[in-house]
Design a protein around this nucleic acid. Structure first.
Length: 872
RNA sequence: GCGGGCGUGGUGGAAUGGUAGACACACCGGACUUAAAAUCCGGAGGGGGUAUCCCCGUGCGGGUUCAAGUCCCGCCGCCCGCACCA
């Protein structure tokens, strides 16, 4: 019979409407079934979805639909990370309001997402730019402020003097603002901070429990938190006229090398530096030079180690009569440790570079295991490995770790300025999270500055603090600050004049708790704790690895802060995390060297050689490297065009096939064609099966012949393995299993012309289950087939097929026979055949006898039901 | 520099220490067709015998084991993250 081609363009919108009308994917907070929360990182509403979104959401949807089929109450919501800079830039360029631009983009992207057929609960949609979201964020802020989790302090920032705003490090390129091109200045600004560093230890130790996270991400967070154990050590200053200070405190993780110390170095931002610079023009100039370098990391990396001698000396803390010069050095960071270090050039590369430049002594105090104490010397490379301490009086002969402890004890017992000279301390690299942004399009910080009452939070009854609509972006800087009236208020405490805080929050705050808001998106409080606790933590979170540190760390902190303020009662927001790879595509270049879009070329192949030429001009095009899809390289493929041409199911299927989900996937036309062909193949199989069944209606479900039983086994095995693979997020393997099952079913249908009724029944049941296996991945096709097969209800509501354990075991097994580890043959034996019997069979094999050549085997290894290895 | 990951056919990739290359893409051959598309069947790691057999083969070199892509040691290459963190 001939079957009409499956037409996704017609069927996909139809099923989307059916799901919509039935509210198939709306989750109820009162549902008694086991809850399962799957979440994909919500998008920034840039205006269009890209293939990365398609991949991300296709994966999440498979998980969501699978767990629904497993009878769980699945929460699978979607929202918009809707505040941020691009909206303001668009406002400047197009003279539209950021809100208008953002809301238009949301509408457009929502249409696109809907066309993908995702099983999303749209009744819970949230957009962080709407007051009904951010008012609750303001309430959280006020609670956290009251709980002492927020502080206001001065901090050094990258300041763009033209745009009049703070820039993140990555927005500073070669010391210049990425937009304005103006040289970036370092400024001290008073900023609001979340005290994330208070949670450094907890955030670090909590990582050990996150066993369903990629090891890579946990490692990255560990490094970011950067715990180090060391000693705070006081150095006594020799009396000097230039300062009243009597000591300098340094932090060192290597107090074992104290006898190798040859100088002290202060940060340019150390308060003693500032004091000394007041009367020292050379030092003032040096500090200014350091500041001009900015904080951009690549600049700092290349900078030469430089310093200025302060004229001060400190006493060596152990060696009687010895002194060390005090420098200000450009490589000493103020916000780590104490902003001062002692330099031990022999065992630290930076100190060595510095010592060589200023001719300071280099005395080795750690001897390499194979080193000779009399001759060992450090040249251009500091020795930082393990060894034995020497040249160090009472530390001589100790290991590094023992010497650290000895030194710590020694200094703890002595005192300087009435304090212990040394104190063991744990330091973290993690700094407090500065959230102040001089921006309009963000969540207003709910604080007022009153002349009488000081800086105080807005009263909760006065929330939300709403962004004014009538803003102008004509002037650079913060449009909120420029607004003529908005910031002027009366203090709710004293009634006197006050001004609103005009800084808004970092958009990372918005995304640090949206997962909690989804559990009760219309609640009058930020969360309904009982509801949030029932859903959270998110069982499976899926997104890009680019958020491995900031977003995920902030969310982990925020969850703890919400616990401290009574909004949730959990520590970790995301139980399972999965980071998917990027979508890549070939690049194309014209003879002139310009990038050319894939839609503007024609590919040709002769044999295995592929060439390309320009669609319009016909000029030859060079096929270039495979890169992440990006507008600048023009190698993007628009999801809309793919959906229009092939349907959403094809795009989804392709995204799940072939490449392991954590790795990059290359988008190819051939791959899409293949996915589309498979879709048609399934549709044809269903059509053929219906035709076969129609000829011979059977209800017999037993007495299978061998063929029928074999087919049933294949089906049960596939159901089991696809389930295992989806649960393990190995979508590419699940797809491969489905291909195998389909091939088996197609073969079976092909030879089923005069088959007995039981075999047709096995085929029918197999096809039915195939459709269920496909349903999480190609849901529209699955619904169409389900309906065609005459099944009642939606496949989206059907429970996952049961697996009969008896169908997973075989009663006979194929044993490969190896001779000396190389396969020489195989035998088929009943399962559980005793080893002795197997041995007889093996030795009687002609091929084995030939290999033995009449000699007795040295040894026969028999792994029951697995393999036989004959050693000769 | 530190940390993590990876290296398997023409390609993407499979493989609890147990038959390496599942599945797919591309390719080649055949069937159907006036022809093409679509579809179906078949082939295929390399080399040799060209039958039903043998040798080599998972970046390179060693090792453990009856058996190694997988475990251990040492190299090489690529990718990612972090980095003046004392």
């Amino acid at each position: 019979m001939s079957v009409e081609r499956y037409n996704p363009r017609e069927m996909e919108p139809r099923w989307q409407k059916v799901w919509d009308d039935a509210q198939s994917f709306a989750a109820s907070n009162d549902d008694p079934r086991e809850p399962y929360y799957v979440l994909e990182m919500f998008p920034y509403p840039s205006g269009r979805i890209h293939m990365g979104h398609v991949r991300n959401y296709a994966m999440g949807d498979v998980v969501a639909r699978y767990h629904r089929a497993r009878g769980k109450n699945v929460l699978h919501p979607m929202g918009w990370d809707a505040f941020g800079l691009p909206a303001e830039n668009a406002a400047i360029e197009r003279k539209t309001h950021p809100g208008t631009w953002t809301r238009q983009n949301i509408a457009a992207m929502k249409t696109q997402l809907k066309s993908m057929g995702l099983s999303l609960d749209w009744t819970r949609e949230i957009a962080t730019c709407e007051p009904d979201y951010y008012q609750h964020q303001q309430a959280l802020f006020i609670d956290m402020l009251a709980a002492g989790l927020i502080t206001r302090k001065k901090s050094k920032v990258n300041w763009d003097p033209v745009d009049m705003t703070v820039l993140a490090n990555e927005q500073v390129i070669d010391g210049k603002g990425w937009r304005s091109g103006a040289p970036v200045e370092q400024r001290e600004l008073t900023q609001w901070f979340f005290k994330i560093s208070d949670y450094a230890e907890e955030l670090l130790s909590g990582l050990d429990g996150l066993t369903d996270w990629p090891e890579k991400v946990r490692t990255m967070q560990r490094n970011w938190i950067g715990k180090s154990e060391g000693l705070r050590l006081l150095f006594e200053l020799l009396p000097a006229q230039t300062t009243a200070a009597t000591s300098i405190e340094v932090f060192s993780t290597r107090p074992d090398t104290i006898f190798g110390a040859s100088f002290l170095a202060l940060s340019p931002d150390h308060k003693l530096t500032s004091e000394l610079a007041a009367n020292n023009p050379a030092l003032t100039e040096f500090v200014a030079e350091c500041h001009r370098l900015g904080t951009a990391t690549e600049v700092l990396e290349k900078a030469e180690k430089k310093g200025v001698f302060t004229g001060l000396y400190v006493k060596h803390p152990v060696i009687e009569g010895a002194t060390l010069p005090v420098y200000v050095a450009n490589f000493v960071l103020m916000d780590y440790g104490t902003g001062a270090v002692f330099g031990c050039p022999a065992h630290d590369q930076r100190d060595l570079d510095f010592a060589r430049k200023y001719d300071l002594p280099v005395l080795p105090v750690v001897l390499p295991p194979d080193g000779d104490a009399a001759s060992f010397a450090v040249a251009d490379e500091a020795f930082t490995d393990a060894g034995t301490i020497y040249n160090s009086q009472f530390l001589d002969g100790l290991s590094i770790d023992d010497a650290k402890r000895q030194a710590a004890d020694y200094f703890a017992a002595r005192s300087v300025d009435g304090k212990p000279q040394g104190k063991v301390e744990i330091n973290y690299r993690l700094r407090d999270w500065g959230i102040s942004r001089q921006r309009y399009w963000g969540c207003p910080i709910p604080v007022i500055h009153c002349e009488v009452c000081g800086t105080i939070p807005v009263a909760k009854k006065d929330l939300p603090v709403v962004l004014p609509e009538d803003v102008s972006f004509d002037k650079p800087g913060n449009a909120l600050d420029h607004h003529p009236t908005w910031k002027h208020v009366n203090c709710h405490q004293c009634g006197g004049p006050a001004t609103r805080e005009t800084d808004t929050m970092d958009t990372f705050v918005d995304s640090s708790w949206y997962f909690a808001r989804f559990t009760a998106p219309q609640a009058p409080t930020p969360t309904i704790p009982a509801v949030a606790n029932a859903w959270l933590p998110v069982d499976q979170y899926i997104g890009g690895v680019e958020h491995a540190i900031l977003h995920l760390l902030y969310s982990r902190f925020f969850t703890r802060a919400m616990k401290a303020t009574g909004h949730v009662n959990i520590d970790e927001p995301f139980k399972g995390l999965f980071t998917q790879g990027m979508v890549t595509h070939e690049t194309y270049k014209s003879p002139k060297g310009d990038w050319v879009a894939p839609t503007d070329i024609v590919l040709e192949s002769q044999g295995e050689v592929r060439t390309a030429r320009h669609l319009q001009s016909g000029e030859p095009i060079t096929i270039g490297s495979i890169e992440k899809m990006s507008k600048s390289k023009k190698n993007v493929v628009d999801p809309d065009e793919i959906v229009a041409a092939y349907g959403a199911d094809t795009a989804r299927w392709f995204m799940l096939s072939d490449s392991p989900p954590e790795r990059d996937i290359q988008w190819t036309e051939a791959g899409v064609e293949g996915a589309s062909r498979f879709q048609q193949r399934v549709w044809r199989l269903v059509g053929e099966t219906i035709a076969l069944i129609g000829q011979s209606k059977s209800t017999v479900r037993e007495n299978d012949d061998a063929e029928g039983l074999a087919l049933r086994k294949i089906v049960h095995r596939a159901v089991q393995q696809v389930a295992d693979d989806i649960e393990g997020l190995r979508f590419n393997r699940a797809v491969a299993q489905i291909y195998e099952l389909t091939n088996a079913l197609v073969r079976s249908a092909g030879i089923a012309g005069a088959a007995p009724a039981t075999r047709l029944d096995a085929l029918e049941q197999g096809v039915e289950r195939l459709i269920q296996l496909i349903a999480p991945m190609m849901p529209h096709l699955a619904e169409t087939c389900w309906e065609a097969l005459g099944k009642t209800g939606l496949v989206a509501d059907a429970l996952w097929p049961e697996v009969d354990p008896a169908m997973l075991v075989d009663d006979s097994v194929t044993l490969p026979i190896q001779v000396n580890g190389k396969r020489r043959g195989e035998i088929v034996v009943p399962k559980g055949t005793p080893s002795a019997e197997v041995e007889q069979l093996v030795l009687s094999l002609e091929a084995i006898a030939r290999m033995l050549d009449g000699k007795p085997p040295k040894k026969i290894v028999i792994v029951p039901d697995r393999i036989v290895n004959v050693v000769v």
